[in-house]
Design a protein around this nucleic acid. Sequence first.
DNA 1: GCTCTAATTGAAAGATTTTTTCATCTGCAA
DNA 2: TTGCAGATGAAAAAATCTTTCAATTAGAGC
Lengths: 130, 130
Amino acid sequence: MRYEAAVGKLRGCGYKATPQRLAVLSAILAGRHQGLEEIRARCPEVGMVTVYRTLDLFTGLGLVRRLDLGHGPRYELAEDHHHHLVCEDCGSIKEFERCPVDLRSLPRVGGDFEVRAHSLEVYGRCSDCR
Amino acid sequence: MRYEAAVGKLRGCGYKATPQRLAVLSAILAGRHQGLEEIRARCPEVGMVTVYRTLDLFTGLGLVRRLDLGHGPRYELAEDHHHHLVCEDCGSIKEFERCPVDLRSLPRVGGDFEVRAHSLEVYGRCSDCR
DNA sequence: GCTCTAATTGAAAGATTTTTTCATCTGCAA
DNA sequence: TTGCAGATGAAAAAATCTTTCAATTAGAGC
């Protein structure tokens, strides 16, 4: 129940669960790594300003992850760790779960860096474009 | 001689080595992962439109890499493979060379994806912010 | 339930960023 | 040199994002 958990976190942090916020949350849940336009289209009753503010809020709470895969920001629910395969030709995006990053081999750059998260995007050509 | 190599590639692809393009190239070479403002400040004699167009051109040629580390696009010369440590508090960016990604363990998602490149960003808190 | 209040919303205006247009200019091949 | 396809840039337009502020509302407390 991803929806309930997200609402719970929202409330738990002292924020009101307004219809607008729930609508944006549902919009995000209804797709994967969507751009602003897509999200807005799924909740046209919510004002633009509120969508921006809500995405900022969700991102700040760690509820939502903001992706930069080119062509503007995209958003997805921040739950399971996964990465993206981005096709440089058609722009399609696929996900994969198996994380090929070995964080233990991270060098210590200029002292101690506290690692909190990482993002990996793999670029190339998808099977359809070949 | 990163500069010469880049100019060679530019010419080799049939593009003119105009003073503006060389100025933008020098600007990129003068720093690391710079934003548009920084680059523009280093070549104020070049018109804004041309900077945009030139960065697009360089990126398309694979001469320059466009980074999305939050807070707008950044650009750097696409030469040696490296990744970034981004401090979520102060926004500082450090680089590291040792690549902790094992591409062999990439799963085949929906058939054959031809991997051309990948980008890894590690987020957290830098030593200064702790 | 009902009331009250601080949090939230959204229309409009403003700021910023990026793109398009098109007349003019220029790098460079011949 | 010369010619011209490619390149530039000022201005305008378009797209994107933020601020403002009056009106609304979720939800705590009674």
